[in-house]
């Protein structure tokens, strides 16, 4: 099938098998794609990418689902200022993931930061109502109880991200090279850097 998608800011028009996993498409099409998924679909977490801003395992996304999508691999993400915040936090804490899982963990951290950001925006802007029809409940932004707690904590000024949320999100990556307590510090620091920059800009 023919599909069009945006990978790391470049527009691609590809002819691929409709069920081909995105991880293989990236490996073949993007020369610099450094992911090293060895699990053959067993969710090792190393092939994490951002699809339309949401973290996803590229080995679990078929070609027919990415038509028109915007895909950001770690190579593309590294060039953004959001990645610099996380790298600054690694340096500040003095610990960082091993080279094997560095890309995947960094992208998971980014997705956690995005999620918490969204949560906070929703909290401050009130309940967001979707375009539900008759008999439908309003569609709210994706969240869960841990993220709710987190949003409440950051609103009340304590501003830390709960270790439970971090441990749950990091369960996707099997590598235990970095402790949850360090990750907690890294995420909180990165979130602080990001908030400061946003405050300066506004």
């Amino acid at each position: 099938m023919r599909l069009n998608c945006n990978i790391n800011g470049s527009q691609y028009s590809l002819v691929v098998s409709s069920d081909k996993p995105l991880s293989q498409i990236l490996r073949e099409q993007i020369i610099t794609f450094a992911e090293n998924s060895q699990c053959l679909g067993a969710s090792c977490g190393n092939c994490m990418v951002l699809i339309n801003g949401n973290a996803a395992l590229s080995c679990l996304v078929p070609a027919f689902k990415i038509n028109g999508a915007s895909i950001l691999t770690f190579e593309g993400f590294q060039k953004t200022r959001f990645c610099h915040d996380i790298e600054r936090a690694y340096a500040e804490v003095g610990n960082q993931p091993c080279p094997q899982c560095y890309p995947s963990k960094t992208i998971i951290i980014e997705s956690i930061l995005n999620k918490v950001d969204k949560e906070n925006q929703n909290r401050f802007s009130g309940f967001r109502i979707g375009s539900g029809g008759h008999g439908e409940l309003p569609q709210v932004q994706q969240n869960d109880s841990a993220a709710n707690e987190q949003a409440a904590r950051s609103r009340s000024g304590t501003g830390t991200i709960s270790p439970e949320l971090i441990a749950r999100e990091m369960s996707m990556s099997n590598c235990q090279c970095i402790e949850v307590s360090d990750l907690e510090k890294i995420i909180n620091l990165a979130y602080r850097y990001r908030s400061r920059r946003r405050a300066r800009r506004s």
Partner: peptide, 22 residues
């Protein structure tokens, strides 16, 4: 998301234990 308003805490935890948000 809906469950956080409707379900019990135990049930919410059970559903969230299915995997990470990814």
């Amino acid at each position: 998301t809906m469950g956080s308003f409707i379900f019990s805490k135990e049930l919410n935890n059970a559903i969230s234990s299915i995997g990470s948000s990814v």
